[in-house]
Amino acid sequence: MRVAVLGLGIIGSRAAANLQRNPKNRVSLWNRTPKGLEGEIPDLIEATADADVIALYLKDGPAVREIAERLWASSSGTPVLLNHSTVDLETTRWLAGECAKRQWGFLDAPFTGSRDAAANRQLVYYAAGDPLLLEKLQPFLLETSKEVIACGEAGRATIIKLVTNLVSACTVQALAEGLATASHHGIEPETFTSAVASNACGSPLAALKLPTMASGDFEPHFSLQNMLKDSRYVLELAKGLDTPAIKAVSDRMSELCDSGLATKDYSSLSSPYLDS
């Protein structure tokens, strides 16, 4: 497979490294700001020339639109475009329509999983689009993931990704408030963490985040600014519905990003409570 991976952040760089481990793949990498990684090509058009698959791990909707337009303006081939970036629903539908016009294959394929999952091929892709194309590319997708969940027509995977991130953001805010309240009354973080693990509210997310929240270790696995971006996309999806939880958490994340925590992990929602 001739593959171009565009976007070499926390996830894209690790997914690319996994693809490079398959000697049958020829992998080219590109990032707006060069990272100096093996296989990286500074020029976008050169990096994607004659690619069978172009995989996008970009920051947001505007970045995806800009790069897609640059590709279409210069490409003479008809590769498959895999959008793994978390974007708004309108951008996904636009990508699907524009790819169809040009006879490019397209899959709407955002993922769940953060830094360590990406490194260990433990991502899960929500994948939507042509079922025959998805079937063909499933082995390729499994080179960077442990599971591919078929979601139907393009756009449905984007919706699922955004609403599950809504749940994660609200859960971490609830964990931060619970941890802070328990600590305020003299309960050790370890006791609270153990209690949550044995409670119905326990989850892999709680097990992952609570220890680092208690210690103030906010090394980014999934950044606060990215979760804020996704929360705003969710609010767009939810227009006409009363969604007070994600609105409140989105506002909170905006405040904390403005305070200097934007590049920290979104578990930094607990940061305001550390000194209280």
Rank of each mutant, 00 (worst) to 15 (best):
L179D: 06
L210Y: 00
L133V: 04
L81C: 10
Q173F: 03
S145C: 00
V80N: 01
T171K: 14
R14D: 09
E46R: 11
D130Q: 08
E219H: 10
P272C: 12
E219R: 11
A238E: 04
S215Q: 13
W104M: 03
M213S: 04
L166M: 09
P139F: 10
L228R: 10
S74A: 15
G97V: 10
A200G: 06
W30R: 06
L269A: 11
G105Q: 07
W72F: 15
G61T: 15
Y266H: 14
A174M: 12
A119K: 03
E190P: 03
A150T: 03
R32F: 04
L269G: 08
A68Y: 03
Q173M: 13
W104R: 02
A238Y: 04
S75N: 13
K35I: 14
T78Q: 15
E153T: 13
V148E: 02
T243P: 02
A169Y: 03
S259N: 14
L256D: 09
A47L: 11
V249F: 08
P204V: 00
G113E: 08
W94A: 06
L19S: 06
R21P: 00
L123R: 00
A109Q: 05
P62F: 12
A154T: 07
G129P: 03
G105I: 01
T212N: 15
L208S: 12
G12K: 10
V249G: 01
P220M: 06
L82H: 04
Q138H: 05
L237T: 05
V148N: 07
P139M: 08
